[in-house]
Design a protein around this nucleic acid. Sequence first.
DNA 1: TTCGGTCACTAACCTATGTAATCGCAAGTG
DNA 2: CACTTGCGATTACATAGGTTAGTGACCGAA
Lengths: 247, 247
Amino acid sequence: MPNRFNAHLGLRPVDPIIRRLRSLANLTDSDVELVRGLTERRERHGPGEQLIAEGDGAGRPRFVVSGWACRQRLMPDGRRQIFSLLLPGDGVGFGARPSLSSVVALTALETVDASVLQDTVRRGASPGLARALAAADLREDALLLDHAVRLGRLTAFERVAHFMLELQQRLEIAGLGDRQRFPLPLTQEILADALGLSIVHVNRTLQQLRRAGLIELRSGVAILREPEALARICDYRTPAVAPNKAA
Amino acid sequence: MPNRFNAHLGLRPVDPIIRRLRSLANLTDSDVELVRGLTERRERHGPGEQLIAEGDGAGRPRFVVSGWACRQRLMPDGRRQIFSLLLPGDGVGFGARPSLSSVVALTALETVDASVLQDTVRRGASPGLARALAAADLREDALLLDHAVRLGRLTAFERVAHFMLELQQRLEIAGLGDRQRFPLPLTQEILADALGLSIVHVNRTLQQLRRAGLIELRSGVAILREPEALARICDYRTPAVAPNKAA
DNA sequence: TTCGGTCACTAACCTATGTAATCGCAAGTG
DNA sequence: CACTTGCGATTACATAGGTTAGTGACCGAA
């Protein structure tokens, strides 16, 4: 629970958002100030809580501040497919279209309302933030295609490796991990539903990666021992981030 | 090769486009006239030809008039994942963002340039067409999520059934099939790359569906003998089409 | 403290799916 | 005509991954 406590340590709850947006486009000081101001309307959600239901119209836009969530779809027989994970710094509910998937908290989750930011962008008052949101959208689409390739064409071993690398990269951008280490507060069941595998096989595959000396998992923290080897295994390409390119 | 030949039979090459757009939003007579006018700048592509490469900037917008294409991604070792099929009436290259996947012709393919239409929409001169394009975009996203569920959570049997139902529905809208019968000019290899299966297993699964009396395939034509049974097998839900809803 | 619940982990077994190798047919093509 | 080439079909075999069942560690609630 990051709070006023760590403010004087230079850590603010909205930092992941700022880091994320800055990785997508150049922001002016006033852009950053605006994001800092979002600290007001906060919401807390328990694990399992649904933020958005499938088919919901455009809801309030929000940013995840802490905790993890996901987009998913459920089948009537209980099978679940997770489309993407929402990490601190990620936006939800932007875009004025009915949601095609539900959004569910996977851990205790904290969000802030981003209506102010969205209004500012719509008013045309911040080209920087506008570009950042557009880039975030593009990035999300790219991740979904990566995910489809993972599900359709990668083996379990490759899938897990690929997924770990994606998480590392995203969390590092959010300031929540380094090139080798990051928090991973997911059960193996959640991993299974994201990767299109069974729980048991996720477990097997993680063991395999461990035994190969490629990763390490301990109490909610993942360590990539050999990021380059992992990347070779699954043909992971670090996405080109273009913070300086105008539209 | 539909041409001036069948014009006096009431069949025009742009008909699939008109039917498609009409299924997405109400069009005025002048909207339809505009689409009819697109017949000019036509392009022909041979099977295998790449229309758009991964990373290409916003290209000319086009509609598929005849033939099939797909969005896909290739892995260095030759594995391929197809993300979506592009059927007559479908648009490509709208949206001013770099393409995240390449677009490749699967059969002989005919397209028309849609720049005029896009300009009209951008000028705000046709709310109907604007809504249609937005709806097409939304629909495309929805199909991609369906696809992810197919790849991640459906068995081969369910995948093929689901895919056939999707094609039936889309082709019927385009006026290229009825509730049971539609053209299917795809090799089993292409099906495999779309469904995340091996060629052999696609063959097996098709046999299985045939023996079960659910489908029939003959010389490029698919027949769904039991559409309802198929839909039950894979929990296929006909997407809600909302041609009358304003944004 | 005990109890119930969740989760990681394991083992045994089963089956869906992939791989490799052929065959035959139909449609070019020279 | 002989000769490819591409594609669907089929078989035999190998294996990745699913299913079921169970254990023990941990943890919060009573």
